[in-house]
Design a protein around this nucleic acid. Structure first.
Length: 569
RNA sequence: GCGCCCGUGGUGAAAGGGAUAUCACGCAGGCCUCCGGAGCCUGAAGUCGGGGUUCGAAUCCCUGCGGGCGCACCA
């Protein structure tokens, strides 16, 4: 749509004494197609011209009367708005040609200029099963990396595994006391998790366990072989389990740099904050006092000498800038860690790093049960693997009912089942908390991925019947779209590039997800009103080109959310 | 106690300060001899309370209420 706004900007700018950019910025879409296709609100001119917005709109309308542009054919005043009406044959032809020519590239831009964005996402904790709680970071982070790539950035996905910290002392204590090597190898992650839960239960009544755990972690940090061997075993077994999930989701990380990856850099990081006088000793610990910035103190080293999460993030940020020269570093991490990242960025600023402001926390809300918060410590959790499997199973069952002759049911079931779970997470504003509900997860009607995928499959089906996967371009035909449902659909397709841009700028995949629902809805309305395979060859070709363009946008758009668009389902 | 986030029909959500607040689930009714009914159409139903800024507020500010999350030896 930006393309079409520019033309109006050029026409209007001299008339309203504003620059073209400002005019295009002010242009908006009227709430009702009867009111035109783009509107210029005259309110902001009223004070300067000392006239009512409606009078200004009327004057502009008068001076444009009888005139037209390339894409618009008339402009009318309606109250305080100056409304522009598109010349639909010209507009539709231009847009469809653009989509036809650009194909998979439609909607992409090069604004990123190849700049590197490192995205820290997914980041599960070793020794714990992959719970539903980790789906948000995983799918949001993955979608953002795809969306930002489409904006011309080079994205590096980093899985910041929770593979270091006091919890490994706990794991070692638990395994030493109660562990069984045979059981461990039968079902590693669940068994480790079982031990982890038991540790917390027993630690409630036996304080010496925590003390012992801290001691073991200290030995781990000192590199004692016995401790390191345990850690390596736990880490390897856990990673093997996570890889199954990532394979299923089609996610590949550029780096599995867990917290342990930065161990050798911690001394330097601590030395730097000390040399710069940023950190001070307090009660035996090393802290950064952030009181003047309205933040609580940040601890970098405990009194027993062990480091913390923040210490590792501090070292990691410097490592990432040094190694990748990022233009942005995104942390796709839960909103409950907002304070942590505020402290991290503030410390980086105090250290004088100009790139501190390029470190951006992309927070999201918590997944909760009806009864309250999920707690991995108490063993209250839902496995992501189970959610994905049940969703795929249900999709398979529905396909079995609705499309028993389908050749490849399994890949369609995966596309629909996995798509449902992903879309469910991506389609709402990420900052909001969500309540986990099996019925909602396992629902393929309404505003879901299946709705979009179904529209896509229908289009593919019509094109198969028409005997072509890719209808040939026809200049004359493309101009013959004028019915209300066709006009609405064309206009929605035109918005795709700016929706991607908005998604990227706000780090909000939900903008793109919502938009794809709109496209599918507009297509369904068109589908029920406008038969494609009609006798009139020109209209038929025009509609084939239109639905091919819809298919393109649905497929590209779903792709950016990490969701497959099967041709049949 | 202090700080941050969220309050939109019965339920779940959308709305880059703009025209008559949009959609889904559920509910009531209708649509397959016609390109795939995982769909389409019609209907009932809503911005937490109170101030303020603005020509204009669901949106920005203040305040109250409700919910969530944080706040030195976890991550």
């Amino acid at each position: 749509m930006d393309h079409y706004k520019k033309e109006i900007g050029r026409v209007l700018a001299p008339l309203v004494m504003l620059d073209e950019f400002r005019v295009t910025e002010l242009l908006e879409e009227p709430p009702d197609p009867e009111l035109g296709d783009l509107a210029f609100p005259c309110f902001s001119l009223a004070a300067r011209q000392k006239k009512s917005p409606a009078a200004i709109a009327a004057e502009l309308s008068a001076s444009l009367s009888g005139k037209r542009g390339i894409f618009w054919e008339k402009a009318n005043a309606k109250g305080p708005y100056l409304n522009f009406y598109f010349d639909y044959p010209v507009f539709a032809r231009d847009l469809l040609k653009r989509i036809y020519d650009e194909g998979p590239e439609y909607g992409k831009t090069g604004v990123g200029g190849g700049g590197v964005i490192v995205i820290d996402y997914s980041s599960p904790n070793i020794c714990k099963p992959f719970g539903i709680g980790h789906i948000r970071s995983t799918v949001i982070g993955h979608a953002l990396s795809l969306i930002l790539e489409a904006q011309g950035y080079r994205c590096l996905g980093i899985n910041h595994l929770g593979d270091w910290g006091t919890q490994f002392g706990k794991m070692i204590v638990a395994f030493e006391r109660w562990g069984d090597s045979e059981k461990l190898h039968q079902d590693p992650v669940n068994y480790l998790y079982h031990l982890y839960v038991r540790f917390h239960q027993e630690a409630d009544t036996d304080a010496s366990l925590d003390e012992e755990a801290r001691h073991w972690f200290r030995r781990l940090e000192d590199g004692e072989k016995e401790a390191v061997d345990f850690w390596e075993l736990f880490r390897r077994l856990s990673l093997e389990n996570y890889d199954k999930i990532y394979d299923l989701l089609g996610i590949k990380f550029d780096y599995y740099h867990g917290e342990s990856h930065y161990n050798d850099l911690l001394d330097d990081a601590i030395r730097l904050v000390q040399e710069k006088g940023v950190a001070v000793e307090s009660e035996g610990a090393l802290i950064v006092d952030l009181e003047e910035f309205g933040l609580p103190p940040a601890m970098l080293r405990k009194k027993d000498g062990a480091t913390l999460y923040l210490t590792r993030d501090l070292a990691a940020a410097q490592y990432r800038q040094r190694t990748f020269h990022f233009v942005k570093a995104l942390y796709v991490v839960g909103a409950e860690q907002t304070l942590h990242f505020q402290q991290l960025v503030k410390i980086l600023e105090l250290l004088g790093f100009p790139w501190a402001r390029d470190c951006i926390h992309v927070p999201f809300g918590l997944i909760r049960f009806k009864e309250g918060r999920m707690s991995t410590r108490e063993g209250k959790m839902i496995l992501l693997e189970e959610v994905l499997q049940r969703s795929i199973d249900l999709a398979r069952k529905i396909i079995e009912e609705k499309n028993p002759d389908l050749a490849d049911k399994e890949s369609a079931a995966k596309a629909v089942g996995l798509g449902a779970v992903r879309f469910g997470d991506l389609s709402n504003d990420r900052i909001k908390d969500v309540e986990f509900d099996w019925d909602k997860v396992l629902d393929f009607s309404g505003e879901t991925a299946a709705y979009i995928q179904y529209a896509h499959a229908r289009i593919c089906s019509i094109l198969r019947r028409a005997g072509t996967a890719a209808p040939a371009w026809s200049e004359e035909a493309a101009g013959s779209l004028g019915q209300a449902e066709e006009r609405a659909l064309v206009k929605t397709l035109a918005a795709y590039p700016e929706k991607i841009a908005a998604s990227a700028e706000g780090y909000r995949p939900s903008i793109l997800a919502r938009y794809l629902i709109d496209v599918a809805r507009d297509f369904n309305r068109f589908y029920h009103e406008c038969p494609v395979l009609v006798d009139d060859p020109e209209l038929r070709q025009a509609r084939l080109l239109l639905i091919a363009a819809v298919r393109r946008v649905l497929k590209n758009g779903l792709g950016l959310l990490g969701i497959a668009a099967p041709e049949e389902m």
